[in-house]
């Protein structure tokens, strides 16, 4: 039971060390002479205007939302696929209907022009 996850748990606890070690090494080995010009935000040579908050496209939000819906669908489908050997034809039909309904949503989104990049 839990022993299966023991390796993953230990891996999770130890894994930050591997990227952190070289970063710390750089802090120790590298020079440190910060100045105002050096720390300026990088932007083609002139001083940055305003803060870095930029107008966010609604488009991105739609893609993220569609992704959430399909992700939740995947969560249902994965155990069903694992149990595929035990499924009856009825079960197959139910799973196919499930996928079909989701595909419907995609067709609707397409039809309403949501997937168009504007």
């Amino acid at each position: 039971m839990l022993t299966e996850w023991q390796f993953v748990g230990i891996f999770f606890l130890l894994s930050p060390i591997f990227p952190a070690a070289p970063i710390i090494a750089q802090h120790l080995l590298g020079p440190r002479k910060p100045n105002r010009i050096k720390q300026e935000t990088y932007e083609c040579g002139i001083e940055t205007v305003g803060d870095s908050w930029i107008q966010f496209k609604v488009q991105y939000y739609i893609y993220a939302l569609a992704f959430v819906v399909f992700d939740v669908e995947a969560i249902f489908l994965f155990p069903i696929a694992a149990a595929y050997g035990q499924l009856t034809l009825f079960g197959i039909g139910a799973a196919a209907l499930f996928i079909f309904l989701l595909a419907d949503g995609l067709v609707y989104a397409w039809d309403r022009g949501i997937l168009e990049w504007v």
């Binding site: 970063i23 590298g30 020079p31 720390q39 300026e40």
Partner: peptide
Amino acid sequence: LVSKEAITPAG
């Protein structure tokens, strides 16, 4: 890369 200065941008 290790011998470079670690710069954290202002802000």
